[in-house]
Design a protein around this nucleic acid. Structure first.
Length: 1049
RNA sequence: GGGCGGAUAGCUCAGGGGUAGAGCGUCGCCCUUACAAGGCGAGGGUCACAGGUUCGAAGCCUGUUCCGCCCA
């Protein structure tokens, strides 16, 4: 590949071909390997959140991979010793269920039929078969993972770490075994941790009441329940101690109507809410978390009536063996028969479901292993308080803290086969031996015949160790020394508790230091309708389907561009299409460069030694600005800003402006200027490729190679991966500003063309450029050739010493800050259109004048607002007035012509009748004009009306096209157009999305503003209006500039 | 019940005290020798609602209404 010396490119970008080429190239060269022995470069490490080994990646994973790869590639190119460590998770329940399902389907056997050993063999086989898929998907996405270090949560070293942790925690008393109520999934047949319970907020159910007869026959007590079947396990009835209704009953007993038992009535102020239901509560300590606590307080019996299979136990007497939901109905029926039914009413209740199977969970009493959390949580809280780990976005800090502060002990045993079997052994006498290696004798009594605990550990237990178990712990490895703590944990906010919090606890406890310095929590990826992607909804998208269709680079760029803090991502195809177009744009920009760099041997750009023009200096300054902005965004994890900065720069400045500007020199005869343009183009394109590489690794690598081959640049590494990422530096603001008038003038002429319907083909031969200060004049003169080319103008006259273009009829005029353009359209101008255009512009100026004037009129504003703000508005006022005067002069000129005067006459007649009504196009505006300082509040409303009117007139006028304009147009080619346009265009239009193309021309617009300000002697003055016509446009551009400034920080 | 987020152009979304933004879509014009996956131009918003703070609020505060998510 290094011998690839192609210097030409195909006409369009074909991602399939290009993307296939580079991953093997990178791998061969070992670029992705983190060097644990290299202590000279600063380390930067990330561990990839391990996906489920039997699953396949979805778009959430693609987002993870993208953002992490952006960070890793950026840091790698910036001189860091990077490690990005891949791996997969054994995903206990999920994997076991998948394999069980498959076995049932294909072999009609259950895991119990096969036995534990054989079943596990099958799961491993399954894992081998499908586990590689995830790796392939990551490679297709371009993820620069260090595959040499790939790990699996159940590989030998991870298992060793798991055992070590379990044993140590046990030795420290932080792991214990106890019989208590746990959430049990009768379907998965395993205990779950609190976190694996999904709470259904408002499940529609019923509250059913029945009577317990008092044992002494003196009456009854009515209780209400949502779970009648549990009454078989009731061992008390509780009332509130202060409830008058039941005061006399406390201490008495009731008789169980279905079982031969007597049950005490107890008083409990915590459990019972006297206002709920009847104020009396049945108590089932073995099947309800609240009741369990009541049972402990009152020493009640715990009677298990529902078994692990969800069926009633022997203790349920007549209902033994019945399914729990059947039993519910049967209990109701039986009690009704006995005349104890006291009615039912609808009731919404919260319901706990199994995260995995959606089965309604059953609280059951059982022996399980737990991690005592409080001693682990405390240091994990402190670490965040002290800032040793920080969350981005910051608000997740609160979520983390809140959870950590009232965390419960963690149930870590699972009744599964697939997982780390708990390293605890039981002797025949029931003593427990916990050990690293399989023991031969009981640690307590020395007896043999030990039996290992059959349960396995919660999958998250091994995941919690991931940042250090993957680096070789419990050994003290070089990898740990070099790369722990990791630099960033980047994952979805949905697993902040499951994973992030637990890694924090384990990392601090076993490594003595936090596992990561920064936690960046990305948003959730949703479908176009905003729904969470899930298998059951069937809206899961395989990233490979997208990469196949649009290219991995397009997908990656889209994901990065949509990753703004604080909102979920709704992935829309339009956006991906748009960024595919962007890739194509970059491709073609490079293609253009290659065509025009023949013979150019690139050396670092040194402006002092080359015949650089203002355009060259401008794009170099803009390039540096893009570099600075991109770096700032990356540093702050603002992926969307970084992406859009580069996008705007490449498309809006490099392609839309510089390439067009450069043609003048590239195609021209001046060897010095040509060389300067070539050097500038090369530098700018190279920088763009470098900036983009972390986001779009494939295409940038491809283009790097051809560009490198073309310009014979020795200093360029043979992979863009090994090249140095651009560094922040001071921006040449004078160069940015200085070029403004050129862009302003071109924009102004294009706008006139657009509004006057003058096709680009028609050469404008009577153009005057004036109102230029000395510097602008010099620049405009120097760049006149470029202005001619970009606006298709011939022999524009540049007026000296700030002279204003002569006022003539038959002309269109545009006034910008620091320049004025007159385009003569003798005999062909649509006077009505031009008048309307100017009218509209003036109306909008009036609106602005009114608002600024009102502000400056307000004494408190002048007194209290910061001086710069006031200054700025004053400068703005001056500028607006100046502009308005110029346009008015032009208007006066226009109104001299016959066409317009007729129209105007009628307008003014209307004005006289109702000067401030909507029919009035100009008078109220005129009233406002001179007196920005005296503008009355009342005027504002009128001005608004004027604007509306002016717009209407503009529309009316444009539709009344003067035929003369047609004469200017070249003959149309209807046959040709109709022959090929419809089909082609229709198709093309559909795919033409151009996303997030923010602020094209941002840069350009900035310049004139400042210039105007400078001229007026007011520094901050201006964001300004570059373009004369259409205030809306001007305003927009001002805002873009403001946005650009903000982005810059 | 507690907490967090959201409501900005037709759509999808940035922005976050000092002139309302982008992409897509829409409307004109154009095959201008890098790119029609393109170029040039235009139109489009009472920033959910109501109060308040402030010289100034889309932004800050309070409340309301909807929509998400998390926790109990």
């Amino acid at each position: 590949m290094e011998n690839d010396n192609r210097t030409e490119l195909a006409k369009g970008y074909e991602h399939r071909e290009v993307e296939a080429r580079w991953y093997p190239f990178w791998l061969e060269r070992g670029y992705f390997h983190g060097d644990e022995n290299d202590r000279t470069r600063p380390p930067f490490s990330i561990v990839l959140p391990p996906p489920n080994v039997t699953g396949s990646l979805h778009l959430g994973h693609a987002l993870t991979a993208t953002l992490q790869d952006v960070l890793i590639r950026w840091k790698r190119m910036s001189g860091f010793n990077t490690l990005w460590l891949p791996g997969t998770d054994h995903a206990g329940i999920a994997t076991q269920m998948i394999v069980e399902k498959e076995l049932k389907k294909t072999e009609k056997v259950s895991r119990h039929d096969l036995g534990r050993e054989e079943f596990l063999r099958r799961v491993w086989a399954w894992k081998e078969r499908f586990g590689s898929r995830i790796g392939e998907q990551h490679k297709a996405l371009g993820a620069s993972l260090d595959w040499e270090r790939e790990r699996f949560t159940m590989d030998e070293r991870s298992s060793r770490a798991v055992r070590e942790v379990f044993v140590r925690l046990h030795e420290e008393g932080l792991v214990y075994r106890e019989k208590k109520l746990i959430n049990w999934c009768p379907d998965c047949r395993t205990a779950l941790s609190d976190l694996e319970v999904e709470h259904e907020e408002a499940h529609p159910g019923e509250l059913w009441s029945f009577a317990y007869p008092l044992a002494d026959g003196s009456g009854e007590i009515v209780v209400a329940t949502t779970r009648p079947e549990t009454m078989l396990g009731d061992t008390a009835v509780a009332v509130h101690p202060e409830d008058e209704r039941y005061r006399g009953l406390v201490g008495k007993k009731v008789r169980h109507p279905l079982l031969d038992r007597e049950i005490p009535i107890v008083a409990d102020a915590i459990l019972v809410d006297p206002k709920f239901g009847t104020g009396a509560v049945k108590v089932t300590p073995a099947h309800d978390f609240n009741d369990f606590e009541v049972g402990k307080r009152h020493g009640l019996e715990q009677l298990t009536v529902i078994g692990l299979d969800g069926r009633m136990t022997e203790a349920a007497g007549p209902l033994a063996g019945r399914d729990r939901f059947d039993a519910r109905e049967e209990v109701k029926r039986l009690l009704a028969e006995k005349g104890l039914d006291r009615g039912t009413k609808p009731h919404v209740l919260p319901l706990g479901r199994c995260q995995r199977s959606q089965t309604v969970l059953e609280p059951l009493l059982s022996d399980q292993w737990y991690v005592k959390i409080e001693p682990l949580a405390r240091p994990a809280i402190e670490a965040v308080e002290q800032g040793r780990t920080r969350f981005i976005p910051e608000q997740w800090t609160n979520t983390y803290m809140a959870w950590m502060r009232n965390i419960h002990d963690w149930c870590i045993s699972r009744q599964l086969w697939w997982g780390h079997q708990i390293p605890a052994w039981y002797c025949p006498d029931g003593h427990v031996t916990v050990a690293r290696e399989t023991p031969s004798a009981c640690a307590t009594c020395g007896k043999g015949a030990l039996r290992q605990d059959e349960d396995v550990l919660d999958t998250w237990f091994s995941s919690a160790l991931w940042p250090f178990s993957t680096m070789g712990w419990p050994d003290r490895t070089k990898t740990l020394e070099t790369f722990y703590p990791t630099s960033v944990m980047e994952t979805g906010h949905d697993i902040i508790f499951f994973w992030v919090a637990r890694m924090m606890m384990m990392g601090i406890h076993f490594m003595g230091e936090v596992p990561f310095r920064t936690v960046y929590l990305h948003p959730m990826v949703r479908d176009e309708k905003g729904q969470k992607m899930s298998k059951t909804k069937g809206n899961v998208i395989d990233p490979l389907v997208i990469t196949e269709q649009y290219g991995a680079d397009a997908l990656r760029f889209t994901l990065a561009a949509l990753t703004a803090q604080g909102r979920d991502i709704k992935l829309a195809k339009d956006r991906i299409e748009g960024y595919r177009a962007f890739a194509n744009k970059l491709w073609n920009a490079t293609r253009f460069a290659l065509m025009n760099l023949e013979g150019h041997v690139h050396r670092d750009v040194d402006p002092t030694k080359l015949a650089m023009t203002p355009a060259d200096r401008w794009i170099l300054a803009r390039t540096q600005r893009a570099v600075n902005d991109t770096l700032a965004a990356l540093e702050g994890f603002r992926f969307n800003e970084a992406a859009s900065t580069v996008y705007q720069f490449v498309w809006g400045e490099l392609c839309d402006w510089y390439i067009e500007l450069a043609k003048e020199a590239l195609y021209g005869d001046d060897a010095g200027k040509k060389a300067a343009a070539q050097a500038t183009l090369t530098h700018t394109l190279k920088t763009a490729l470098l900036l983009l590489h972390p986001f779009m690794p494939f295409i940038t690598e491809e283009l790097w190679h051809v560009l490198r081959a073309r310009v014979g640049a020795d200093g360029w590494p043979d992979s863009i991966l090994a090249a140095r990422y651009p560094r922040a530096a001071e921006v040449d603001e004078a160069a940015e500003r200085g070029f403004g008038p050129v862009i302003g003038v071109v924009d102004a002429i294009r706008n006139i063309r657009g509004e006057m319907n003058i096709p680009f083909k028609v050469v404008l031969e009577d153009v005057e450029l004036g109102s230029l200060d000395a510097e602008a004049e010099a620049t405009v003169r120097e760049e006149l050739g470029r202005i001619h080319r970009l606006a298709n103008v011939k022999d524009a006259r540049v007026l000296s010493d700030g002279a204003v273009p002569a006022k003539r009829g038959q002309s269109a005029v545009a006034v910008g800050a620091g320049f004025e353009v007159r385009v003569g359209l003798a005999g062909a101008i649509d006077l009505a259109a031009e008048a309307a255009r100017i009218e509209k512009e003036i109306a909008k100026l009036d609106q602005d004048l009114a608002s600024v004037g009102k502000k400056l009129e307000n004494p408190s504003f002048v007194a209290k607002a910061p001086a710069e703000v006031v200054e700025k508005d004053r400068a703005r006022l001056v500028e607006l007035r100046e502009k308005k005067h110029k346009l008015e002069a032009h208007r006066a000129m226009l109104s001299g012509s016959e066409t317009l005067s007729t129209r105007r006459q009628s307008m003014e007649n209307q004005n006289e009748q109702k000067p401030t009504t909507e029919e009035s196009p100009s008078t109220p505006a005129a009233a406002v004009q001179e007196a920005a300082g005296q503008v009355q509040t009342a005027v504002a409303g009128a001005v608004e009306k004027v604007v509306a009117t002016a717009t209407e007139i503009a529309k009316a006028a444009s539709s009344a096209v003067v035929s003369g304009i047609e004469g200017l147009r070249k003959e149309k080619k209807p046959a040709r157009r109709s022959a090929r346009k419809p089909a082609k265009k229709a198709a093309a239009k559909k795919v033409a999305a151009k996303p997030a193309r923010g602020g094209k021309k941002v840069a350009a617009k900035k310049a004139p503003a400042r210039k105007a300000a400078a001229r007026g002697g007011k520094k901050a003055a201006a964001k300004r209006v570059v373009k004369a016509p259409a205030r809306k446009t001007a305003a927009k551009k001002g805002a873009r500039k403001a946005a650009a400034r903000r982005g810059r920080k």
